[in-house]
Design a protein around this nucleic acid. Structure first.
Lengths: 212, 212
DNA sequence: TAGATTGTTAATCGATTAACAATC
DNA sequence: TAGATTGTTAATCGATTAACAATC
């Protein structure tokens, strides 16, 4: 049922559907129609049905969508039911916050190693993981073949480390620096988390309040 | 020159232009054509010209764009040359990382207060700011009228605090929890930083590598 | 002036919304 | 069966790209 290329707009909406379906489960709700879900998520029912039908229909005519089934299908679409290995580089403020706050397993990844260049951090345990020295990165990757790397590095360090990891066969990156990785490494798969951009657009919208 | 409603797609691209123009400045480059910038940013020259012309043209025919001027114009468009006041709630891992890593002034905001519910944190100085107890929030806001709030709270705490802040007249929110604030408070201006969503879409893209 | 590159209009492309037949 | 709601096609809307006249 899966058509050739699915728009990244559709893909990017999937985690949000997933979150809302989780909320519905928590409320003990078992089924929902596209119209009801649309109202809750501030979307149109049409869009919801179109989105889901990119991957084949998960609903039942005259009934709606079974929430448990739909959520499971989305988990499968996103691949988070088949966790991949990931490492994290940079155990500074952001790295630490990510390690401690993110439930990797439920987002499709198993965190198998964390690295920093600071000798003083090496050996420290952050949420079950010992910090490893960056000099052991090559060996670790050759042995464990992580699928993805979460980069919590300053802008200047991001490019060389990304290059190093790419050479070690790592394809996927979640990048927290303001450096735009993918421009230099088009063959990689990158999600940039530029949350400072959010501050700037918030600034714009506050200064131009008339527009909703 | 500013036309009625500017697409949020355009607005969301502005911070990225701003970053790239900063990089160009750092490299000592003074002028750039839309074609050259397009190549660097992986966009089309057409789109760049269209984007800038939403706000009036900042280029010169036959020459291109003066980088200093263009960057300044974008800063003005985003309003980051006129900083607004902001408070931050939740001095946990994420809050701490944000306070320490984000250069608020250069993103359009002045951080005037940080709050937490934990008594043990109160009085602690985090990058020049003393942590205040959440019970002093109302008084602080009535006195200082912050324009925005950065919420670094667990999902469950986000909604009530957002409501409280809204009642205190705060319009803008940068939200780091996975709770979607704006659904309940349509009159507010919210930027959601759902970086866990990025992990899930990364999972999808790694599992479906054939599509660039 | 000639060449270059913008600003802007027109054409295309893609995404969202609407409509409705299929069907539970 | 009748009512409801999906899956899916068609219509609309908006965003991106292409083209070119204006002009530095």
């Amino acid at each position: 049922m899966i058509k050739g290329a699915i728009s990244s707009l559709v893909i990017n909406r999937m985690p949000r559907y997933y979150r809302f379906l989780g909320d519905l489960q928590d409320e003990g709700i078992k089924k929902i129609s596209s119209r009801q879900l649309a109202e809750r998520m501030n979307l149109t029912a049409s869009q919801i049905r179109q989105d889901f039908n990119c991957f084949g229909g998960f609903g039942q005519q005259g009934y709606g969508y079974n929430i448990d089934i739909l959520k499971q299908e989305i988990a499968h679409i996103l691949g988070i039911d088949r966790p991949q290995t990931a490492i994290l580089i940079g155990v500074g403020n952001i790295g630490r916050a990510v390690i401690k706050n993110v439930n990797f397993e439920s987002k499709g990844f198993t965190l198998i190693g964390i690295f920093d260049e600071k000798e003083s951090l090496v050996g420290q345990i952050v949420k079950n993981s010992p910090v490893r020295h960056i000099s052991t990165l090559d060996e670790f990757c050759r042995e464990n073949r992580p699928a993805a790397a979460i980069l919590c590095l300053p802008k200047a360090a991001t490019k060389p480390i990304a290059q190093q990891l790419l050479n070690l066969g790592i394809k996927g990156f979640l990048n927290f620096s303001s450096y735009d990785i993918y421009l230099d490494f088009p063959e990689s798969i990158v999600e940039n988390v530029h949350f400072e951009d959010g501050l700037m657009t918030l600034s714009y919208r506050l200064h131009n309040e008339e527009n909703t």
